[in-house]
Design a protein around this nucleic acid. Sequence first.
DNA 1: CGGGGACCCTGCCCGC
DNA 2: TGCGGGCAGGGTCCCC
Length: 285
Amino acid sequence: MPELPEVETVMRGLRPSLEGSILKKVTQRRDNLRFPLPENMAARLTGRKVEQLKRRAKYVLAHLDDEMVLFFHLGMSGRVTILQGDKRPPLGTHDHIIFETDSGDEIRYCDPRRFGMMDLVHVNDLESHKAFKDLGPEPLGNTFNGPDFFARIKSKKTNIKATILDQRVVAGIGNIYACEALHLSGISPERQAQSLTMAEADFLVVTIRDVLNKAIEAGGSSLRDYVQASGELGYFQHSWSVYGREGEACRRCAREFDGKDDTQFLIERIQQNGRSTFYCPTCQR
DNA sequence: CGGGGACCCTGCCCGC
DNA sequence: TGCGGGCAGGGTCCCC
């Protein structure tokens, strides 16, 4: 689930509990996720103060007071839960790492499939780390823009869907928002990336930003409820335009063909590079 | 090098 | 009710 907007929401949700707090106790319940966890991670983190939380692509980074940076990725099934006060349900099988702060908050990192990862590196080694060295621009930052994006894709023969999922091209987009952005922009996921015109590339950049920003807003608005209710971050309700809507009427066509029978404009599902793509063959060209 | 497929792991849902 | 198959929002590696 966690794509850029969800990871941003998780990071923002963690800030009140972690920024400026001291990690009083860290419990590590297994020695690996997708990759081995850092040697003696719990001991190395205990007593450290978290100075600042940041996000890069789909990673949350915690800058510590000893020039080290703790960072994690949620993979497909990772979740973070904040527990406060007396409400402390028993640990589940997949609660792998638990952080307790000096103000009494408990943060649980849970990941059933263990496609997530966590690592601890010196701040000077961050950019050269395997996780970050090949990442493309942040889609919501200034370096992701029409001209640069167009230049990056102009020689790519692969389809545009796989291209915007490629973290080296632009960082943080996952399967849902790739489908959503292409739908909103009216571009077929099957188009070769190099076939996009400058105007189309430019518009796709705008729609990617738009889709991500709106999702972050939606996450932010449900975040307060989530933190208070269950403490669980990152999973909020959403109504997608195309994702998961195979066989249903295209909302974009329904708008454009207002008054006509919109049941003929149905969302289809295809496989691209081993993953499902949802799109409307009528309005995505 | 670019591109596509296999793979890592668990849970869930569906059809039989 | 049990079981097998397919599917899931991730990234990495390996081979062509």
